[in-house]
Design a protein around this nucleic acid. Sequence first.
DNA 1: TTCGGCATGACACGGAGTGTCATCACGTAG
DNA 2: CTACGTGATGACACTCCGTGTCATGCCGAA
Lengths: 191, 191
Amino acid sequence: MARWAPDTRERLRAAAFELFGERGFEATTVPDIVERAGVTRRTFFRHFGDKREVFFSGEEIPRLAAAMLSAAPVHLSPFGVAWTGFQTLAGERFEPRRAEIAAARRIIAAEPALRERDLQKQADLREVLTAGFHARGVEARRARIVAGVAVELLQTALEQWADDDTNTSLVDHLERVRAEMAAVFDADLPG
Amino acid sequence: MARWAPDTRERLRAAAFELFGERGFEATTVPDIVERAGVTRRTFFRHFGDKREVFFSGEEIPRLAAAMLSAAPVHLSPFGVAWTGFQTLAGERFEPRRAEIAAARRIIAAEPALRERDLQKQADLREVLTAGFHARGVEARRARIVAGVAVELLQTALEQWADDDTNTSLVDHLERVRAEMAAVFDADLPG
DNA sequence: TTCGGCATGACACGGAGTGTCATCACGTAG
DNA sequence: CTACGTGATGACACTCCGTGTCATGCCGAA
């Protein structure tokens, strides 16, 4: 047997989620986690930048987004790229894990520290999309605007899909949110 | 003379900003701040929940938003309420302090810890607007969608206004961003 | 003058995150 | 078979963050 058991990072992640389930995020300390995983505190911080990162360590949305950006047909509008990407993500990564995602969202909503980090992750996605659109030739400020709208759309749809107990699909939520957002800009404005 | 000099909170804020200017946010510790302000560490944390809150202690946007919500004519659409509120805010609170706001935004952009907190403040505004729209009779999910669009619009316009060296007014940026967002939803979509 | 509220000081404590050096398994070259 | 380099981990110390608790003393009310 090796001096150290393998998969240290995964063992830490598993131990952390067990403890989060038992006592909640805030009440779980890094010493608690490393004791269960059988490593030292120092090793924890070699695998995760901070305690919050354990919670988001499975996230790979920005990476997937970058892949979809480079794979998208050149003729597609930037919002079209995002929209088709969201359809794919919805079917392949979100829909099959609805219960898990909804549970994670409830935990995030209840923990200010996780809420801040989650918002940062959204901002990361927005920046990846902005950079990708810009690389496709879209003017910088417009790229930022489209990315902002797209991420807000995805985020809102995810939120309402996770809260919805009618088994409506995420794709349907995306379409509904898109339509309601469009309606916002169709209405007349004062002044 | 009183046992304690007055305006403890304001002295702490002033000392903090001096030090942020001298060494940056991250390199400034709470012990540094309280030493300059002439109080103890414990007193600092009685006035500010954490170090980041000093930076945002002047912010009162959610309060102003709530005031505008209750003052808005009942016939106005939710987005109309937000839009007219933004026009007022732009002229009265943002435009006169452009240099100061731009400087603050640069600091925030450079500090991940402040960036996270700033995103949280945006989320707070979104929630205030959502609750306000809902209280005006707008269906819950629609209220969330309109608030999300409105906050994203304001945030993007602020960002681009602060970065813009052509002296274009914030109101013009708001209108341009609104128009470009509307265009996003006018274009055809694949599928 | 007395009394009670209230902001602050004093002190202690655990947790977060980091720098630094020692240790030891493992693969590889000789 | 041995020696060595690499890389992950342990061991240890340190500062800072944030909080609970109690003592202190100013200040206004009765």
